[in-house]
Amino acid sequence: MPRATSSLRAYVLQRLALTVPMMFILLTLVFYFLRAAPGDPVSQILGERNAQFADVIRKQLGLDRPLYIQYFDYLRRIFTGDMGASLFTQRPVAEDIAHRLPATIELTIASMAVAIVVGVLLGVVSATRRDRPADVASRLTAAVLYNTPIFWFGIIMQLIFAVGLGWFDVGGRLDARLPLPPTITGLYTVDSLLTGQFVTFLDALKHLVLPATTLGLVLSGFFARMVRANMLQSLQADYVEAAKARGVRRGDVFYHHALKNAMVPVATTIGLTFAILFSGAILTETVFSWPGIGLYVANAIGARDYPALQGAVVYYALIMVFVSVVIDILAAWLDPRIRY
């Protein structure tokens, strides 16, 4: 189908063009909040006492120049990948972040998987048993899950499954005594499995389960809500009734007609769920000492490490834009109507 392919390509290009203004807005907002907002990061960093030292730092960071020059300098540096050096680690922020990115990606993917599986299950149970006890029960479960403070939930999980039962580890990515798997993807579970290091794989998994479940379960509440709402609509759709009238098997009606159509709007909002996921990851990584970007942000806050914070935020902005494009393309692939 050459026609479909080319129009999908056009759609993707159109989407990519839209991301340019979106990226500028995000980057500008970050700049504005960090430098032009009332209050001054440098005095926040140093407190009122070190006025002299503050001037030196300001000069070092280029904060004494006019705002618009700072702004263009800021943009230039972002596009050349130069985010300055962390005040705390003394290394380039870009390097720090690149080093920590795989940990965050591993946690994010695992959490998303947990969230989608649990969320779709809860949502489907709810929608197919509308207003019956099973519906009420899974709705309440979803509401409680989604509204649980994630850091607290993480602590409870640690208390029960790591401290109490000893099944999993309290924190970190891997036992310090084990050798690191060779870097292929940067994801310990994947790399160890690819190279056949099963001991390392099991240990990496033991570390990953609790943080991924914590983050995933909280997010599953969000999915459950959306799946339920969309399933309720698609179960009442005309094409579902028509399929029943043709004697299509119950399973097919449910899966191919009701569920798939309900998942299209859910897929388009996955971009937004990434925002929730990243927010949650900051807290989850802090609780589980998971050495990703979230923990980096938390440490940067504690150390008042302002270049590190800015660098992390810029990275998140870039990731969010990237994710939203990927999600839109995914939705177009799912729904033939968007392609044209």
Binding site: A237, D238, Y239, A243, R246, H256, N261, D335
Partner: peptide, 16 residues
């Protein structure tokens, strides 16, 4: 036994 409905625009599954 077959049934043909009134509104053909909404009776086919848009994803199939």
């Amino acid at each position: 036994l077959s049934l043909v409905f009134q509104d053909p625009m909404t009776r086919l599954n848009p994803l199939m």
